[in-house]
Amino acid sequence: MKQLQKGPMAGRTVLVTGASGGIGRATAVGLAGMGAHVAIVGRDPGRVEGAAREIRAAGGGEVDAFVADMSSQTEVRRLAGEVLAALPRIEVLINNAGGCWDTRHVSADGLERTFALNHLAPFLLTNLLMERMLEADKARVVTVASNAQALGRIDFGDLQGEHAYSGARAYNQSKLANVMFSHELARRLAGSRVTANVLHPGVVNTRFGAEDPGTIQRVLVPFLRPLMKSPARGAATSVLLASAPELEGVTGCYFANGKARKSSTRSYDEAAAARLWRVSADLVGLGAPAWDAKPG
């Protein structure tokens, strides 16, 4: 017999990507503790199962675990199929998976990996799951960005960093893309029961960027770690956006430290956001979805 969950998120299903560690794992733990049926996604099978065990041990009840390399479009499409087969409802999607690399890496699809993982993966997954989310009484898309969005610029002439690559520039661009995607998604969902918001989690003490660290991460981060937020504190705004009753109907906003803030001026450029949507759809081979009342 399944355990009957109690709490403010009881009866609601939440999918969290990048949830085998760090902010994503803490987000899943927090929402499971509020009674949500949590489904988590991670790249490493062992770490994903470990996270699922932790959530269950903390009294989180029902937990589904999925494995996918989100930088691969084939994997994202397979994940979406598995999720749709396993979850009859999705009330919350938290696009949390992300990464940062000092040197240029290429994904399985031949795309610059930072852009592929941080932006194209949530763009594709959200689109593939949206019809299921629209079937819910009400649903929320929450995308984890970073205040690095303030330094970002969408370089449509060199989105993949083929001509001039900088790890910091690629990351900043991807985080601005997260914000612009969320704002554009909110516009396209206007009048529906699905909201879309984006957030800055703060500077959090995780393994982020450890695979290919830059100079700042190698030299400064070890000294700054005592001042960084814990993963649980870093997850607080994600948990809030996923669960707070007072945010029902709030959409198209950027949050930091639990409050709505202004994002960068560039993030409000609707023409650039629409262009980014079209370019992203081309890069992932996505036609105009049936749910999208604003195709093209």
Rank of each mutant, 00 (worst) to 15 (best):
H105D: 06
G296Q: 12
R89E: 15
L241N: 02
K229D: 13
A274D: 14
I94L: 15
R193F: 00
S238K: 11
I216M: 14
P213F: 09
H183I: 07
D64R: 13
G7H: 12
V83R: 04
L15H: 10
L84G: 09
Y171F: 12
R193M: 01
G287I: 04
L159T: 12
M133N: 11
R275Q: 15
F223V: 14
N178H: 07
A116I: 04
T251F: 05
K6Y: 15
A68D: 02
L111A: 02
T13A: 13
L134P: 06
G22H: 08
L15C: 08
D158G: 03
Q5C: 02
A196Y: 02
T126S: 14
E184A: 03
P231H: 08
L199W: 06
M70I: 04
P201I: 04
S263N: 03
A58S: 13
P8I: 13
G191N: 00
G191I: 10
D282G: 12
W101C: 09
P295N: 04
L189N: 00
L247A: 06
V41W: 09
G81N: 11
V204K: 08
R266W: 09
S107E: 10
P88L: 12
A36K: 12
E62N: 10
T195G: 03
D212S: 10
L15G: 00
M1K: 04
F181P: 06
V141W: 12
A58M: 15
V67H: 08
